[in-house]
């Protein structure tokens, strides 16, 4: 189980970093877009918040999974 969490955390870290490298901004069209905001880097704050929320939700789901595992084992042993 510990290895699973380790893998999960490395996945989160990789997904957080990789789009940063891929980001090449080009303002081409007339319509106003959030290029300035993104070049200031502030959009990454939002992305960070999203990743934290998702991570929390996933940990919650995993905990429920483990609790269910435990309950299922208990009932298996009883019957």
């Amino acid at each position: 189980m510990k290895a699973f969490y380790k893998a999960l955390f490395s996945i989160i870290a990789i997904t957080l970093v990789s789009p940063v490298a891929a980001l090449a901004q080009e303002a081409s069209g007339q319509p106003e877009m959030a290029t300035g905001m993104r070049s200031n880097g502030l959009i990454f704050v939002v992305v960070g918040v999203i990743v934290i929320i998702l991570g929390g939700l996933f940990l919650f789901l995993i905990r429920i999974d483990r609790k269910l595992n435990k309950m299922e084992r208990e009932i298996d042993n009883k019957s």
Partner: peptide, 15 residues
């Protein structure tokens, strides 16, 4: 995680 990071960061068409 890919959806929410790439979805926020990739270049989208300006409309």
């Amino acid at each position: 995680l890919y959806t929410f990071t790439a979805g926020m960061l990739i270049d989208v068409p300006a409309r």
